[in-house]
Simulated assay, not measured.
Amino acid sequence: MILEGKRFDVEHALTLYALSYVTIPAEGLYDSNGVKQFSDVTKKCHIYIVGFVPKMELLDITLEGQSLRMFFRALGKVYELPWKMDEGVGLVRKDEQWFLSKDGMLASPPPLDRCTVRLNRKFGTGKFLVKYIGQAYGKDGSRSALDRLMKHEKLQEIAIKGVPEGYRFQVLMLAIAPVNQVVTIFNPRAEDDSQSEKRIGQGLDKLFGTSEKERVALYEAALIRYFLPTFNREFSDSFASTNLKILQDCYEKDFSAVSAEINFDDFPFSLYSESVIPKEAHLAFFDLHEDQARKVFFAGA
C-alpha cells in the first residue's frame, strides 16, 4: 500500500501541471508573423518538447446531403473524417481551396487543429516521438521557450541528424500553472509520528516557498526522467549548471514526491518515447521518500 513503509506521519508531494500549450512545426519558429499570433501564450511557456510527428496531408473533401467527409493521408494510409453539416450547406472550390457555402456566404471547413484531435483519438495518427526536452527561464522569467528555441544549437543538430521520412519536426511549448500545489498525506502507519507539527509547517513552507524558477526546473527534470528522450541522454549538458544548482537547492526541501502532468482536453498528440507508450495524457510521478531515489532525481544526471 502507498502508506506502508513511509517514515513520517505527514508526507508532502509537489504536483506540477501544464496549464496551456502552443505547438508548431519547427520551421514555423522562423515565421515571425505566424508565431506572433500565439504571443500571449508563448511568453508564459518555459518548457519545450521537440520531436517527430507524422505529416498530415488533406487529400479531398466531399459533401453528400449533410454529410461532409474529409480525407487525409499520413504515413501512406488514408483516413476518412466525417462531419455533419447544417441543412443547406454547400461545398465549393475556389482559388485551389475548399469552402463551405450557405446563403451566399463562404466559410472554411473544419480547421486542421480540430481535425488532428479527432484523427488522433480515432486512429492514433498524432503520435509524437519525444526526442528532446528543455527549458528557458532567465533571471526573472523574462526568457521564454520560444526565445531559447530561436537560438537553439541542439535543435539544429537534431534536424541535421535527419527527420524520418513521412514525419515532420515538431515543437511543443508548455506553460506551467503559476501556483504551487502541495498534496499532504497524513499517514497512520508511519514509522515516526513525533514530528507532525514540524512537517505540517514544512508543507506550508513548500507551498509558499517554491518559486516559479524552481517549479520550471522540477517540471523539466520530471519530464526528462519520465520520457528519457534520446537527445537528452546524448547531450551531456542536458542540465545547465544553473539548473543543477536549483535542483540541488530543491533537494533540501524534503519533498516526499514530485509529479509533472500533461493533460489537455483537446490535445492533438499522443506523446511517447523509447521508454513510454503513446498516450494523450501523461503523469510523471516520482516517489522521493527513499534517499537514493532523491539523490538520483535531484542529481541532474
Rank of each mutant, 00 (worst) to 15 (best):
E157L: 12
I158F: 14
D147H: 14
D237K: 15
R225N: 07
K36D: 12
I133N: 01
K77L: 07
K139E: 13
K279D: 08
Q170A: 10
I49K: 01
D287A: 03
Y21R: 05
W83S: 05
D113V: 02
Q181L: 10
I2E: 10
Q292I: 11
F264N: 03
Y21P: 00
V179E: 14
A217E: 01
L288T: 01
L283G: 09
E80P: 12
R225A: 06
S256K: 01
R73K: 15
Y79F: 15
P25V: 03
R225K: 15
A145D: 05
R69M: 11
F8L: 07
S67I: 08
D291K: 14
I262E: 01
G201Y: 04
I185G: 00
L119C: 08
D205E: 10
I24V: 06
K279F: 07
L204C: 08
G126F: 00
F123R: 05
Q170F: 01
L207C: 02
L14R: 00
P178I: 09
V35T: 07
K102T: 04
G88Q: 04
N187S: 07
K77C: 06
P188A: 09
S20K: 13
T116N: 10
A175S: 06
P109F: 13
K161R: 13
L19W: 06
E280N: 01
A13H: 03
E290R: 05
K154Q: 08
L63F: 04
R189K: 09
L91P: 00
G104D: 11
Q202I: 13
P25W: 08
L91Q: 01
Y251S: 03
I61L: 15
F52I: 07
E4N: 15
F286Y: 14
H46L: 12
Q248M: 08
L14M: 11
Y48F: 12
F255L: 10
C115V: 11
T184Q: 11
G138E: 09
V179W: 08
L58N: 14
P54N: 11
N33H: 09
L16N: 00
A177N: 14
K245I: 08
M70R: 03
N33G: 05
E191F: 09
Q202M: 10
Q97G: 04
P109Y: 10
K6C: 03
R215Q: 11
H282P: 02
E165T: 04
S238K: 02
I158K: 12
L58K: 10
E4L: 12
A221R: 13
C115I: 06
A284G: 07
D40Y: 14
V10G: 00
G300D: 06
G34N: 12
L63K: 14
K161Q: 14
S142F: 00
